[in-house]
C-alpha cells in the first residue's frame, strides 16, 4: 500500500494513462513502425523482413506514377479547399444577417456534412452516370453536350472535387459563421457609419479580423482533404487509368493489392511529411 501523499501525486498520471496508452499504441508508435517498415521488406503476416535501406524510396521516386499521384493529390487539395472555403464564406456572410428564417438555411446547408461518404458516393455515381444520370439531362436541356464525368481522365478528378466541395461546404460555413458572430460589432458599425462601402468593409475589416477563423478552417480542411480516399475507392478505384489515384489510395493499393507493404509505408510517411510541411507554411503565412 502506497502512502497517501504518493497516491495523490500519482493520480493525474493515473487518469492520463489510458488516453496516453491508446495514443502511443495507435498514433505515435505507428509512425516509427512505418519508418521501420519502409526500410525493410515486410510481408503480410508477422514477418518484417530483412533491412533493405532506402530502396523503397528509390523505387518510388523513380516511378512516374508516384509523381503523378502526388500531383493529383495536391491538385485535389488545392482546388477543393479554396473553392469550398470561398463558397462557405459567401454563405456565412449571407447567413450572418438579422433576417428571419436564416436558421433553417443554416441547418439545410449543413445536412451533407452528416451524410456517410458511402451514401454520397452511391448517389453521385447515379447522378453523374453516363447512362440515365440526371446531371447530363440538365446539361442537355440547357443545350450542352453530356459530359463523360467519371469515364474520361480529364473529367474524373474535377468530378470528385465537385462532390467533395458539396459534402464539406456546410462544415466550413458553420465555422465561418461562428467567426463572423464573434467579431467586435463596434468596429463593424463604426466602419458603416464612416460610410465605407460594403465591399471595402469586407476586404479591409471583416476579412482581416477573420484571419484566425480562416487559419483554423484551412488547417482542418487541408488535413481532411489530403486524406481523400472514400470517393476514390467507391467511385473510380483510382481510374480511369489512374487519373483519380491519390496518395492514400496509392498506399492502400500498394499495401493491400500489390502486397508491397514497405512501399505503402513509404508512401504514407511521405504524405505525412507533406501535410506537416504544408501546415507549417500555412501557419507561417496566416498565423503571424
Amino acid at each position: 500500500m502506497m502512502p497517501p501523499r504518493v497516491m495523490a501525486a500519482a493520480r493525474p498520471y493515473l487518469y492520463l494513462t489510458p488516453t496516453l496508452a491508446v495514443l502511443a499504441a495507435f498514433t505515435y508508435f505507428p509512425i516509427a513502425r512505418l519508418a521501420e517498415m519502409s526500410l525493410r521488406a515486410p510481408s503480410v503476416g508477422t514477418s518484417l523482413g530483412p533491412w533493405i535501406g532506402l530502396s523503397a524510396y528509390a523505387k518510388l521516386f523513380a516511378n512516374p506514377l508516384f509523381w503523378r499521384v502526388l500531383g493529383q493529390t495536391i491538385l485535389f487539395v488545392f482546388a477543393s479547399v479554396p473553392i469550398a472555403m470561398a463558397l462557405a464564406l459567401g454563405l456565412a456572410l449571407l447567413l450572418d444577417q438579422p433576417l428571419r428564417g436564416l436558421s433553417v438555411f443554416r441547418v439545410l446547408y449543413y445536412t451533407p456534412v452528416v451524410m456517410p461518404t458511402v451514401a454520397v458516393a452511391a448517389l453521385a455515381l447515379w447522378m453523374f452516370n453516363a447512362n440515365g444520370g440526371i446531371v447530363d439531362y440538365f446539361l442537355r436541356s440547357l443545350g450542352i453536350a453530356p459530359v463523360p464525368w467519371l469515364v474520361e481522365s480529364k473529367w474524373a478528378l474535377p468530378t470528385l472535387i465537385l462532390i467533395a466541395v458539396w459534402k464539406n461546404v456546410g462544415y466550413y460555413m458553420i465555422i465561418y459563421l461562428a467567426g463572423l458572430q464573434s467579431l467586435p460589432r463596434a468596429v463593424l458599425d463604426a466602419a458603416r457609419l464612416d460610410g465605407a462601402r460594403p465591399i471595402m468593409r469586407f476586404f479591409t475589416i471583416t476579412l482581416p479580423l477573420l484571419r484566425p477563423t480562416t487559419f483554423f478552417i484551412t488547417v482542418v480542411a487541408l488535413i481532411g482533404s489530403f486524406q481523400v480516399f472514400d470517393f476514390v475507392n467507391l467511385m473510380t478505384q483510382g481510374g480511369p487509368s489512374n487519373a483519380t489515384n491519390v496518395l492514400v489510395y496509392f498506399a492502400y493499393q500498394n499495401g493491400f493489392e500489390y502486397l508491397q507493404l514497405g512501399m505503402a509505408a513509404a508512401i504514407s510517411l511521405i504524405m505525412f511529411a507533406l501535410v506537416l510541411g504544408i501546415l507549417g507554411l500555412v501557419a507561417g503565412a496566416l498565423n503571424r
Binding site: L34, I223, F226, L261, A265, S268, L269, F272
Partner: peptide, 15 residues
C-alpha cells in the same frame, strides 16, 4: 490531431 488514421493504417493493420 494531425496524425490521421489514413497515415497510420498500414502499421496499425500489421500490429
Amino acid at each position: 490531431l494531425i496524425v490521421p488514421v489514413q497515415v497510420t493504417f498500414i502499421a496499425n493493420f500489421m500490429t
